[in-house]
């Protein structure tokens, strides 16, 4: 759980630390492998939800409301008699999908804007950095909540809201990397070789600076999943009755004294998902950092 500015600060701290990089192949990197297994399993569960879920996640069965975990319902049922396990499985589809997709737009926009700002500098750079500072002044959740409200309920406005805020972090990372890269000899050589600015950015600088944006993207996915479940918990996210982890916690909070597992278990699943994703991020930063190639 974090916010772009705090996440960015942590990313930059790690970047500066530049400890000796591992030269082992990716499958010998324990965090990457552990992360891939955890996230892979979750994605598999999400994809196979129609097969795996024992019940329809939205079908009400008021006769069997608020059942304790048992043979028929492994994790019990909620106040409408819906099977908690099935909702958990189907919730993986919603939360993981939005978490991953929400990263794409800001990744692309932020990287392009950051690369242009860093490469050309001048007034464009000043304006972009000014806008970045303004966006960083708003706490992430305040902005997400306001924007989702403004854009209206639904998945599309969640993408829009998250994109509108989190592109700034990518812009800042890529700009910083480009500022360093453009002083390197290989860029000068490419320019002297007669290549256009566009080609130099896309083919020569791009591949060398994007790895940092990619590493950041992993922690960004975690932050987006947190944002989605938080919106769900506040009643501002994906509309009920669709199964979603955050709104499941909200539903469960009502029965915290009698059915503690209802609010607890979706939270544990979120913890597992975010652990897996941060392990992938750690593994990627071991493998992708430029220091490794020296």
């Amino acid at each position: 759980m974090s916010t772009p500015s705090a996440l960015l600060a942590r990313h930059q701290e790690k970047r500066r630390a530049s400890r000796p990089r591992s030269l082992k192949p990716w499958y010998q990197n324990p965090s990457l492998v552990a992360g891939l297994i955890v996230v892979g399993a979750l994605v598999l569960i999400a994809v196979l939800a129609p097969v795996l879920a024992p019940y329809d996640p939205v079908k009400q069965d008021l006769q069997n409301a608020l059942q304790d975990p048992g043979a028929a319902h492994w994790l019990g049922t909620d106040k409408y008699g819906r099977d908690v396990l099935s909702r958990l499985i189907w919730g993986a589809q919603i939360d993981l999908r939005i978490g991953f997709l929400a990263v794409l737009i800001p990744f692309v926009i932020g990287s392009v804007v950051g690369a242009l700002a860093g490469y050309f500098g001048g007034w464009f750079d000043s304006i972009v950095m000014q806008i970045v500072d303004i966006f960083f002044a708003f706490p992430f959740y305040v902005m997400v909540i306001v924007l989702v409200f403004v854009f209206g309920a639904g998945e599309a406005s969640i993408y829009l809201a998250i994109s509108a805020i989190s592109w700034v972090a990518y812009a800042k990372i890529v700009r910083g990397e480009v500022l360093v890269a453009k002083k390197q000899d290989y860029v000068a050589a490419a320019r002297l070789g007669g290549l256009s600015h566009g080609r130099v950015i896309a083919r020569h600088i791009g591949p060398n600076v994007l790895s940092q944006a990619l590493i950041y993207a992993m922690s960004d996915v975690v932050m987006d999943i947190m944002a989605i479940v938080t919106l769900g918990y506040l009643g501002l996210g994906i509309a009920p009755p669709t199964a979603e982890w955050g709104s499941m916690i909200l539903d469960g909070q009502e029965f915290i004294t009698t059915q503690w597992q209802q609010a607890t278990i979706p939270g544990l699943v979120i913890v597992v998902a975010s652990l897996g994703l941060s392990w992938i991020g750690d593994g990627l930063s071991d493998l992708l950092s430029p220091e490794r190639r020296k």
Binding site: M1, Y233, T257, S274
Partner: peptide
């Protein structure tokens, strides 16, 4: 590691469960 992976509002609910309830 755990502290960062837990949704904040969920930590609050868990504290309510353990400490208050």
């Amino acid at each position: 590691l755990l502290g960062q992976g837990m949704p904040q509002f969920w930590v609050g609910i868990m504290l309510i469960l353990l400490v208050s309830v």
